[in-house]
Design a protein around this nucleic acid. Structure first.
Length: 537
RNA sequence: GGUGGAUUCGUCUAACGGUUAGGACGGAAGAUUCUCAAUCUUCAAAUAGGAGUUCGAUUCUCCUAUCCACUACCA
């Protein structure tokens, strides 16, 4: 077979926000296509008019964009789904609802060739059959046995079929599964799979009620028409793979039939079952790439809004069910494209670990420059009522006016970035660099504040008062610790008391760093404020 | 219930049929600094069970168990 240009598709259904498992499927498709220099196509499978959710399509496109996954076909640069065929996009439109006229002829072709039949059983009738079977502890299946006792073009006289087709519209086209045949399939991830057609049911391919195909027909027809070479999709599709093989065969498209790869599911962090929205709410992590608000106003958090870097999110997702075979864990998108392979995709389900996701973000946060972090932190600071002068490179802190130079924030970010998983953690870690403590932790006051330390701190106060303004951190460090040693005071007691006054509790950055950044005036101010607020009897 | 898929530390995973079964997250201990983090060092932690093939099985086969998916005129 001549080597065709690789073309893969991600074909979500716009029935709600895109789950992170869906993003992973899209990512693997994308990586596979890009590695082979092929095309990644986004197709919207909106053949279920009942479950259509407005906004879901836009959400999907935005999510992929946020992840850095840009389709070659399906959407334009603005993220709109391309609706009309053109030279560059001969396969348009990419929304199945807009491809509606295409499918019926294919369904009829199948009937003409004996691979399908018209079925006139109503949903209620079939429901009743299922209930009846259930009562007898068996299951009703529309298959090679039961179809001969049901209302369809196989059992009804030709005239009646003709008449029903004309006068009613609640009939369907069903696939006529061959009897007792073993379908042999090959999956790129799972290998060889065999199944007997007797275990299959005659799936509905097309519905007269809404004139739309079901997934199975639309999927095969579109994959064929769009010249898809590999179908990489979720494991939930594995059971319908034999039907899909049979459909390609019935259409006579085996030559160009795509190869299949079924990805395992993402499992919940604890307990049993697949990862669901509820797990996120329950355990406190996002399940969706972007924030989503449904029609009822229910909010689902998103990785983006939770402060994850898209690179971290993508990296984490890529390693959930795939590994490069080396010990490298950090990859850029380009690196992933280079090393990705379906052969190394894990067959079993991957339990999602929120802690590991945080770790990935921490790694990416550390890769940011101080200036990038300062930029990101600035918007949070604005919310806290702090003004950051973006053009000001030097270090300047005006506590009265809550006005700080960008250089100040930048230096600060350099000091705290190792301590955070998210930029959103910054404020909690370093708010005392913008506002003086309003109170002092009782436990630490008890531990460090007494008549003895008071006398020492008063001397320290004078010492800092006499400090040279030009000193950098190392000099300040030397200046302060040298004085403590000189007087043979306990380093821990002195420094922690100062820290208590600067921070409000016994934690935080090195004293010299704090003094350097907040400046001499603020330093002295905080000491005297604390002495005043905390009387010693 | 039926059909299919899966099974290595708590989690993600590595290991041409021959390794002291490796790494990462998380956990514990220690070191370190003026505290808290961070960092560094160390430690604990796994081949689901049973048969078979083989000189030798995490790896191949079978059985059992468990888990997952599917079983719609949804995708």
């Amino acid at each position: 077979m001549t080597e065709r240009k690789r073309r893969v598709r991600f074909a979500p259904s716009p029935t709600g926000p895109l789950h992170m498992g869906g993003v992973r499927t899209a990512l693997y498709n994308y990586l596979y296509a890009k590695q082979a220099g092929g095309d990644f196509i986004l197709r919207i499978e909106d053949t279920d008019s009942q479950r259509f959710v407005p906004g879901a399509e836009k959400y999907i496109i935005e999510s992929l964009k946020w992840c850095g996954i840009y389709p070659d076909e399906g959407v334009d640069a603005e993220g709109n789904v391309i609706e009309t065929p053109s030279e560059r996009h001969p396969h348009a439109p990419y929304r199945q609802s807009q491809r509606k006229p295409i499918y019926r002829a294919y369904a009829e072709q199948l009937i003409e060739n004996g691979y399908a039949y018209y079925a006139f059983d109503s949903a209620e009738e079939l429901d009743a059959k299922r209930k009846e079977a259930e009562a007898n502890k068996s299951t009703f299946t529309y298959n090679y046995i039961t179809r001969m006792e049901l209302k369809n073009s196989l059992t009804l006289p030709a005239e009646e079929v003709e008449n029903l087709l004309k006068t009613t519209n609640n009939w369907t086209v069903r696939f006529k599964n061959p009897e007792n045949r073993v379908v042999e399939m090959d999956d790129l991830i799972r290998g060889h799979i065999e199944i007997n057609t007797n275990t299959l049911d005659d799936k509905v391919l097309w519905k007269a009620a809404d004139q739309l195909p079901t997934y199975h027909l639309a999927n095969i027809v579109d994959d064929h028409l769009m010249e898809i070479t590999e179908v990489i999709r979720g494991e939930e599709w594995l059971p319908s793979l034999p039907l899909h093989y049979l459909l390609y065969e019935a259409f006579g498209w085996q030559e160009s039939q795509p190869r299949f790869a079924h990805l395992s599911l993402l499992l919940k962090p604890d307990g049993k079952g697949k990862l669901s929205k509820r797990d996120g709410d329950r355990l406190g992590f996002p399940v969706f790439p972007l924030k989503w608000v449904n029609a009822e106003g229910e909010v689902s958090r998103g990785y983006r809004e939770d402060g994850y870097y898209p690179e971290a999110f993508v990296n984490m997702l890529a390693l959930l069910g795939w590994n490069p075979g080396t010990e490298q864990e950090l990859f850029t998108l380009d690196e992933l494209i280079e090393v990705f392979s379906l052969e190394r995709v894990i067959k079993s389900g991957a339990r999602f670990n929120p802690d590991k996701a945080k770790w990935f973000n921490q790694e990416y946060l550390r890769k940011q420059t101080n200036s990038q972090l300062a930029e990101q932190f600035s918007s949070i600071l604005e919310e806290k009522g702090v003004t950051v002068e973006s053009n000001e490179k030097g270090i300047r802190a005006d506590f009265e006016g809550k006005n700080f130079s960008f250089g100040y924030v930048e230096s600060l970010c350099g000091l705290i970035k190792e301590r955070a998983h998210f930029v959103a953690d910054f404020w909690d870690i370093c708010s005392y660099f913008f506002i003086a403590p309003a109170s002092y932790a009782e436990k630490d006051v008890k531990k460090f504040w007494n008549a003895e330390t008071k006398a020492i701190i008063e001397k320290m106060y004078s010492h800092i008062e006499a400090m040279d303004h030009q000193m950098q951190v190392p000099q300040i460090e030397e200046y302060l610790t040298g004085y403590v040693k000189e007087n043979e005071w306990k380093m821990g007691a002195v420094m922690n008391t100062l820290r208590l006054f600067f921070v409000g509790e016994a934690k935080g950055l090195g004293i010299a760093d704090i003094v350097y950044l907040i400046g001499q005036k603020e330093t002295l101010g905080r000491i005297s404020a604390a002495i005043e607020a905390l009387p010693v009897e």
